[in-house]
Amino acid sequence: MTVLAPDYQRILGVLEERQPAGQGPLKAKEITVELGLQTTSAKVEGVRSKARRLAERGWLVQETSEMFSASRRPVAVPGAVPSA
C-alpha cells in the first residue's frame, strides 16, 4: 500500500478497517467524516474523486455510484514471482 499517496492510503485504510467486522460500503461523505475532515462539498467531492480513482485501479470496489468498499482482489507487486 506504500505505493499510494498518503491521502489515498487513508481512504483505503478507513474502508479496510470495516471489512473484517462485516460492515458494508460507505458513501464519500461517510468516508470524509471517518477521516476527520469537514463535510463541505469541496472535501466530500475530493474524497469521492480519490475513491473513484482507487476503484478504477482495483484498490476499492465501487458498489454503486455513491458507495465504496475495500477490494480483496490481488494487486500485482513489482518483482514478485507469479504463482502457478
Rank of each mutant, 00 (worst) to 15 (best):
Q23L: 15
E34P: 12
G24F: 03
S69G: 01
A80K: 13
S49M: 14
I11L: 12
Q38L: 11
G79A: 03
S71M: 14
V14S: 03
L15K: 06
V77Q: 12
L35Q: 03
Y8P: 00
T2G: 06
A28G: 02
R48L: 06
E16N: 04
V75W: 13
P82T: 01
A28S: 07
P25R: 03
K29Y: 06
K43F: 11
R53I: 04
V61G: 04
I31L: 12
Q19M: 04
V81G: 02
P20E: 11
S49E: 10
R48C: 02
M67Y: 09
E56R: 14
R57Q: 15
P82E: 14
E45L: 11
S69K: 15
Q19P: 00
I31Y: 13
Q62Y: 08
T2P: 06
P25S: 15
T39Y: 06
G46D: 12
S65V: 03
E30Q: 13
S71W: 10
T32M: 08
M67L: 15
A51M: 05
L15F: 08
D7C: 10
G13C: 02
L60N: 08
E66F: 07
T40R: 13
A42Q: 11
L12M: 08
K29A: 15
L37F: 13
P82C: 05
L37A: 05
G24I: 04
A76K: 04
V44N: 00
L15P: 09
M1D: 14
R10A: 14
T39I: 14
L37Y: 13
D7T: 06
R10C: 08
L37T: 01
A70V: 01
L12N: 12
L15N: 04
G58T: 01
